[in-house]
Amino acid sequence: MNASPPMPEAIEPGSGVHAFPHRHLTGIEGLQPHEIVYLLDEAEKWIAFNRATTKHDPLLAGLTQINAFFENSTRTLLSFEIAGKRLGMDVVNMAVAQSSVKKGETLLDTTATLNAMRPDVIVIRHDASGAVQLIADKVDCPVLNAGDGRHEHPTQALLDALTIRRRKGRIENLVVAICGDVLHSRVARSNILALTALAAEVRVVAPPTLMPAAVERMGVTPFSDMDAGLDGADVVMMLRVQNERMEGGFVPSTREYHALYGLTRERLSRAAPDALVMHPGPMNRGIEITSDVADDPRVSAITEQVETGVAVRMACLDVLTRGRRGVPGW
């Protein structure tokens, strides 16, 4: 449970801690639409800041951020590290290859150890769904989920939503098609939750073998025919396909996947004329997306997503540590 601390009388609803009354960010699930919008608005402020020559604000100086990544990651780790450093935090990365996790220590023992070092925020990635929630329940500082198994990747959904909002001016009533390995994708889950909360019309496009059961209960429309799923879409959000899913088990082959579910220029023509193409990266060029689409700045927002990502993570780090920093109203 994300219990909210008591609120001083003078604070108006919608400001201060009422704007985001959660201790952790473990997922988009459980967030109200206005809370998502609040984080997007906060992130917006950091985008211009990040484009300046001097990118340092000592807002969070003196605080310690631990990035505990139990699963390999390059870009997300880098993004969180840069975000923390630009806000003046002391950022420490714990990579699993160098940790006692390899020696058989349990997750909660590792957690207790990290907690005892008195960090002010912990960013966690883990390959098991629910692992971040498990840790969040046991530590004294805010926890930020940087991806847990197939469950959630909330900062990815926030950066995607912000990218869409900046490019399209709105999210409401846009048709967003999320395409690819939806079954194994935490990016898809968090995006479904965020975009439906913000009143987009969300479709999911996947081979039947990579479509989660009862996904329509999450308020989306499933398609197994990509052309039909893309028809008139304002945003085409591609997902990364893991190589291990390709050979036999879920999909017969890479080339068949590309033929049926790859985003080509021709297939993109089914979408709205000004459709935006997104991808959380890293891309498998020539498999789920062709280079001419990915590299076309008129349609592709892929590098912009990376830029937005740093701003979103700065906003989350700022908002989640306000209580500890004694910011008035938090």
Binding site: G130, H151, A213
Partner: peptide, 15 residues
Amino acid sequence: TAGETATRLGLPAAP
């Protein structure tokens, strides 16, 4: 069990 709960939680599920 495959269904809404397993889908929301991102848990490996069987029909």
